[in-house]
């Protein structure tokens, strides 16, 4: 078994970009402490690479040629694609793991027709997690994308199948792999409703996720998600894929709807590898 860690965390750009505007700095620092705890847990597993299942935001993949799923195979990546002063994360190169990526892609393709890419500019969706989880940028990263931006989107059961395929691929290689899914739950980001949060919906979704209740997780329609959780809610695909990769129940380590300036209820959780 070479999947050594699986978890999820939030990636909203405000977490770094608007950190200086936050009034409840104790709550913000509490969130940061949970990211740091997640970093320590990942480090303790001694990973050779970090797979980040993300939902990018039209930074690399556009409607001219949109893959449902994509896995990075580059030697290095660059990010953030946004104005570094806006995101408050310095632009840099991030090491990849091209040989490992190729072996993972080959195995994933046994069951899921994933796209792959040797060019990838990370946006906040990956840079914010890396800022907290690999602050020295010394752990090779393999980016994975699920299209959550431009409908038609992959059905949730395919996000689950993609997660299972990633797990099988991780288990087929000798390297020790940590995996995180990163997305939002209910949120209306980049609209005038930025900061709107449906806490009841979030808690119900996270309950289904932590119980690894496959049927309940896959029962949402996109219409329901859009109505109750906003266009940002489509990003639950990343959490669902991470849960499917883990195969075990999760522990919700942190959830707070009390930092709406970050445009989402920030979340940290870890799954059992089963």
């Amino acid at each position: 078994m070479s999947l050594v860690y699986a978890g999820v965390l939030s990636h909203a750009p405000g977490i770094t970009g608007r950190a200086h505007l936050v009034k409840d700095t104790a709550k913000r620092d509490e969130l940061y402490a949970h990211f740091e705890q997640q970093r320590c847990e990942i480090e303790a597993t001694g990973p050779d690479a970090l797979v980040v299942i993300a939902a990018e935001h039209f930074a690399n993949f556009f409607m001219n040629n949109m893959p449902a799923f994509c896995i990075g195979m580059a030697e290095t990546y660059e990010g953030p694609i946004e104005d570094p002063a806006w995101l408050r994360i310095e632009r840099r190169r991030i090491p990849g793991a091209p040989d490992l990526s190729r072996r993972l892609v080959r195995e994933v393709m046994q069951t899921v027709d994933t796209a792959y890419a040797e060019e990838w500019k990370f946006d906040h969706g990956i840079m914010v997690p890396l800022h907290f989880l690999t602050p020295e940028y010394d752990l090779p990263v393999i980016p994975v994308n699920i299209n959550c931006q431009g409908p038609p989107l992959a059905p949730l059961h395919r996000a689950w199948a993609f997660g299972e395929a990633l797990r099988r691929a991780c288990d087929s290689v000798p390297e020790r792999i940590a995996l995180v899914g990163t997305g939002g739950i209910s949120h209306w980001p980049a609209t005038p409703d930025s900061g709107k949060i449906n806490e009841a919906w979030d808690r119900d979704f996270l309950d289904r996720l932590m119980r690894l209740d496959r049927d309940a997780l896959l029962s949402y329609t996109d219409e329901e998600t859009y109505r109750d959780a906003g266009q940002g809610g489509f990003e639950i695909r990343t959490y669902i894929a991470a849960a499917a990769a883990a195969g075990g129940p999760g522990e919700l380590q942190y959830y707070t709807p009390d930092l709406p300036i970050f445009a989402v209820a920030c979340t940290v959780a870890r799954f059992d590898i089963a």
Partner: peptide, 29 residues
């Protein structure tokens, strides 16, 4: 964006429509 809605009316296409009343959700704002 809120001023755009006031001047031009609701979002005409896509999934990024305004769903609230136009008020802020963040005390910082």
């Amino acid at each position: 964006m809120r001023e755009g809605i006031r001047r031009h009316g609701p979002v005409r296409a896509g999934v990024y429509a305004m769903t609230g009343g136009g008020a802020s959700f963040a005390v910082e704002e």
